[in-house]
Design a binder for these strands. Structure first.
Length: 274
DNA sequence: TACAATGTTTTAAG
DNA sequence: CCTTAAAACATTGT
């Protein structure tokens, strides 16, 4: 589920409790998402700490707590985060609940490909690559990253988190569709000016839709599982790619499906050339 | 039933 | 050194 935009929206859902302290931590300690830490110590690490701020980078989120602690969350394939009224019983696949002063912050993940990490005394976001939507993602920076990868498949580069943080399967397809290029082409054949332009369009556009979604969703129970399904415009490939028999929003041809770079890929044979 | 699902990592192999 | 394919992870829905 979660790519750049959904990750950002998830972060905002927890951000509602900024400035509050953690009163109680509930964990499903055996869950695989805690494979890198001692989950049953999360209580001693977090209780009494104040959620001071948060940030997202690509598909990663960092929540900063008083006393130098940072809780990192990655949603994997099926992770969801939201807030809800305090004290409700754990539901199936709720693995972490932070009982705050005004609400409970919940992390739910049934496939558990995501992860939770706790670090102290480090700022794990400082060594990360520039994000596509940032001003520092210049043509020169971008071309430096992909130099020497002329034989790599385009879609594989788009999915590489060191190059395009936050881009996942649907965003990669969206970029290729906007480029008018088949996702399986080699990087040596790609117009890098166009690639960066469409990458930035898709990343910035998706993030703008999140802001819209957050606004529209006030008081309406907007959730991370449904926002992206209704927010991106009908003219994005996104709205058509999942349905069998879905058609290209540009030329109405039926979309094709194929595995490219190891992932199911939707593309339009008439608009996207090899 | 069998397969696929918006992710990442590891392993093996070319 | 570089790329790639496949498998693994765990659960649900078609």
């Amino acid at each position: 589920m979660p790519e750049l935009a959904e990750v950002e929206l998830s972060r905002r859902f927890w951000e509602v409790a900024r400035g509050e302290s953690v009163e109680e931590v509930r964990v499903h300690a055996g869950a695989r998402i805690f494979r890198e830490i001692e989950a049953n110590r999360l209580g001693e690490w977090l209780e009494g700490r104040v959620l001071e701020g948060s940030r997202a980078h690509g598909k990663r989120m960092f929540f900063e707590f008083s006393g130098e602690g940072v809780l990192e969350v990655h949603l994997g394939m099926s992770g969801r985060m939201f807030s809800r009224p305090q004290g409700l019983a754990l539901e199936k696949h709720d693995h972490l609940v932070l009982g705050m002063q005004s609400c409970d912050l919940v992390l739910n993940d049934y496939r558990m490909f995501g992860k939770v990490v706790w670090t102290v005394g480090e700022k794990p976001w400082e060594a990360l690559p520039t994000q596509v939507q940032e001003s520092g993602f210049t043509q020169g920076y971008f071309e430096g990253l992909v130099a020497g990868r002329k034989r790599a498949v385009l879609k594989a580069i788009l999915l590489d988190q060191a190059v395009c943080p936050g881009v996942g399967n649907w965003m990669a397809d969206e970029v290729c569709w906007r480029m008018g290029v088949y996702p399986g082409v080699r990087m040596g054949e790609v117009d890098l000016l166009k690639m960066r332009k469409e990458l930035r369009f898709v990343c910035k556009g998706a993030l703008r839709h999140v802001a819209d979604a957050n606004e529209q969703g006030k008081g309406k129970g907007f959730s991370p599982g449904n926002y992206v399904e209704r927010v991106p415009p009908k003219r994005w490939l996104f709205q058509h790619r999942w349905k069998k028999g879905g058609r290209c929003p540009r030329c109405a041809a039926e979309l094709s499906r194929e595995t490219v770079a190891g992932r199911t890929t939707a593309w339009c044979e008439s608009c996207q050339k090899a």
